[in-house]
Each structure stands twice: as structure tokens, then as C-alpha cells.
Design a protein around this nucleic acid. Structure first.
Length: 330
DNA sequence: AAATACCCCAACCGCATGTGA
DNA sequence: TTCACATGCGGTTGGGGTATT
């Protein structure tokens, strides 16, 4: 089969020779790549444009970082992958000099195994239950620990204090005691895109605005002029979320202090479901929502900009000099 | 020393999306 | 609006190197 660009002429395949590399480097450094499809002809290469592009991006580019990944880079990959899943190109953007292919290979050859050896599911980053680790089987119908906990109802109450709300997203503060299985209600008047960040709760240190992966971000609340609040009815006050955000139009998601992801559907969604089911079934729906978290994580369509902003804020903690990294591009 | 298994990673493949005629 | 082509992305493959038997 081959690429459409390869059918027109005979093309070489396989590993690149030093001579081919030299030709490509000479051409691109002199003329730039312009249209990749015309590069091989102009550079005197019997390769397809796609192959040239890949070779340049993954290997020949002068700004590439050579050598093995540092521990810090590895941690960044793990952190971003936890949020974005297998979006290698997005992950690589957080690692200057690294390519998506390189990150992907490193993940598949090293990190994946490391996580598994630590008892973590490399897809979800959740702890693999011991019985699954032993048998590598998922018992149908089994519920995670977090799913078995009771849930409470939380109402997000945003107070718009700034007319430039859309440009300055609000902080949402959480009550000290907050159940990770809470149902969170967002006022329908608030668009998802305008609520990009939610703050965390730390019972021990109320001054911390939010934390990710146990790291603290001492962000100045003045950055986010809009103030809001959440009221809830805690049932499981011993567990507080370390962070959470918006998954999509229908639900929130987050991560709690017992290292379990949770997902909370919107109240109005639940109510719609409740018209068909009785109250008992509604609780099951919530549990299933949490269970679906793992499956939906990779393919979810929540705002990447938000996620990246959140990640950058966390990964650069202690290095928060550049607040540009925290820009909200909504 | 030879055969085999395993691992890493460069490169390829197919699909999705973007762009311009 | 449609079509063709270019580009970008993630999954997969296969060759070469290394470890093990």
C-alpha cells in the first residue's frame, strides 16, 4: 500500500543512512522544510515526504535532547499521562527536546513496567487490587473501594464578582470535609469552559489553594478574582480530595487523598436518570459513574487546555516563576 | 560458542484532521 | 460543499543489540 506520496516514485524504506541524513540536514537547514512532500525531490532523496518529516522531527532536529530521560522528565510523563492518557504529542510538549515517539517508546519500554511493578495500572494509574494483580483478571461487577463509600450532595455556588468572568475563571473553594463520592451540582448557567479550576481542601493547611499529587501550589487567590463556594453534606469527612476538575459537560472528576480517582456526575444528569430509576438505582448509577472513570479517562473530551494548565501548575510547583504557564486559554 | 529469548527504539502504517482549490 | 492532498498523531512492527540458556 504505502502513502499516497510514495506511490509516485520509488522510495527507499528502513533505516536512514548517514548520507541520507546529511542530505536532509543540508536541505532543511538551508531552505527549511516548506512542503514536506516536495522535500525528498528537492533534497535528492528517494524517500517519501512523510518519512523525511519523521526523520527530521524524531532524530535530526538540532533542538532535540539526546540521552536518557531524567527522573524529573519521567515524573512529568507520569503526571501528564495520568491526566491525558496516551496523548503522546501533548505529553511531549511538556518535555522540551523530546518527541512524541521518544516519550511513547520510553513509556512502553520503561515506565509502564515500573508502574506495574508498583502495583499500579498504567492506564489509569490506580492501584491494581491485589486479587487482580495475582490473577490479572477483572471480576465483573466488582466495585472499587471508593465506589462502596457513601456519597454526599454538593452544590457548587458560584458568585460572579467580576464582569470579566470569562477571562478570569473562578475559584471554587471546598468545605473542609468533602466526600470524594459527592455528587456535585454546577449551576446550568455556568458554562464548563468558564469553570476551569477548582481548588482543593487541606484540613491541616487551609491556606493551600490546591494540591496535585501531593504537591502544594501556593497560588495567590488574587489571580482568580471570582470567588465561589460549595456547600455540602459530608458523609465521609475523613476523606478529602487532593484535586479535582471538570471532566465534561456532565461530570467532574478528581483525585482524593486515598489515591483513588473519582467522578461525580452532575446533579441534573442524575435527576434525569432518576426519572427512570428509583432512588436506590440512582446510587448505583453514581457508583457506575466512578467505575466508568477508568474506561473513559483516555477517551474523555474534557478541555485539554484546562488539564495542561492544571498540570503545568503542579509540575512546576516550586518553580512557579512563570505565571504565564497558568494562563487560561478558554 | 551457538541458539534462543527478550528488549529497545527507529520507522512504518492507517486514520483523523486541516487546508486550499 | 466537495474533493484531493498535506500534515499530524497514535498504534504497531521489525531489525539489531543484549542477555540468557
Amino acid at each position: 500500500m504505502g502513502h499516497s506520496c510514495c506511490r509516485k516514485q520509488k522510495v527507499r524504506r528502513g533505516l536512514w543512512s548517514p548520507e541520507e541524513d546529511e542530505k536532509l540536514i543540508n536541505y532543511i537547514t538551508t531552505y527549511g522544510h516548506g512542503s514536506w512532500s516536495s522535500v525528498p525531490k528537492l533534497a535528492g532523496l528517494q524517500r517519501c515526504g512523510k518519512s523525511c518529516r519523521l526523520r527530521w522531527i524524531n532524530y535530526l532536529r538540532p533542538d532535540l535532547k539526546k540521552g536518557s530521560f531524567s527522573a524529573q522528565e519521567e515524573q512529568i510523563i507520569i503526571d501528564v499521562h495520568r491526566i491525558l492518557g496516551n496523548r503522546w504529542a501533548q505529553i511531549a510538549k511538556h518535555l522540551p527536546g523530546r518527541t512524541d515517539n521518544e516519550v511513547k517508546n520510553f513509556w512502553n519500554s520503561c515506565i509502564k513496567k515500573k508502574l506495574i511493578s508498583q502495583g499500579l495500572d498504567p492506564k489509569t494509574h490506580n492501584l491494581i487490587p491485589s486479587h487482580q494483580r495475582a490473577s490479572n483478571k477483572v471480576a465483573a461487577g466488582n466495585m472499587l473501594q471508593s465506589q462502596q463509600q457513601p456519597f454526599s450532595i454538593i452544590t457548587v455556588n458560584l458568585q460572579m464578582t467580576d464582569p470579566s468572568m470569562e477571562m478570569n475563571p473562578p475559584i471554587i473553594t471546598l468545605p473542609a470535609a468533602f466526600s470524594p463520592n459527592a455528587i456535585i451540582q454546577r449551576p446550568s448557567s455556568i458554562q464548563t469552559s468558564s469553570v476551569p479550576i477548582l481548588t482543593s481542601v487541606d484540613n491541616q493547611n487551609p491556606n493551600i489553594l490546591w494540591t496535585v499529587n501531593g504537591r502544594e501550589n501556593s497560588l495567590d487567590s488574587s489571580i482568580f478574582p471570582c470567588v465561589s463556594s460549595i456547600q455540602n453534606t459530608p458523609i465521609s469527612p475523613s476523606v478529602t480530595p487532593s484535586w479535582f476538575g471538570i471532566l465534561d459537560e456532565n461530570c467532574f472528576w478528581g483525585h482524593n487523598t486515598i489515591a483513588e480517582n473519582f467522578r461525580a456526575p452532575r446533579m441534573d444528569v442524575l435527576q434525569a436518570q432518576g426519572e427512570e430509576n428509583n432512588q436506590a438505582n440512582e446510587k448505583v448509577d453514581v457508583a457506575e459513574g466512578v467505575q466508568d472513570m477508568d474506561a473513559s479517562f483516555d477517551s474523555s473530551s474534557f478541555g485539554l487546555e484546562f488539564v495542561e494548565s492544571t498540570f503545568l501548575s503542579s509540575s512546576t510547583c516550586g518553580d512557579l516563576g512563570s505565571m504565564d504557564d497558568l494562563a487560561w486559554n478558554f
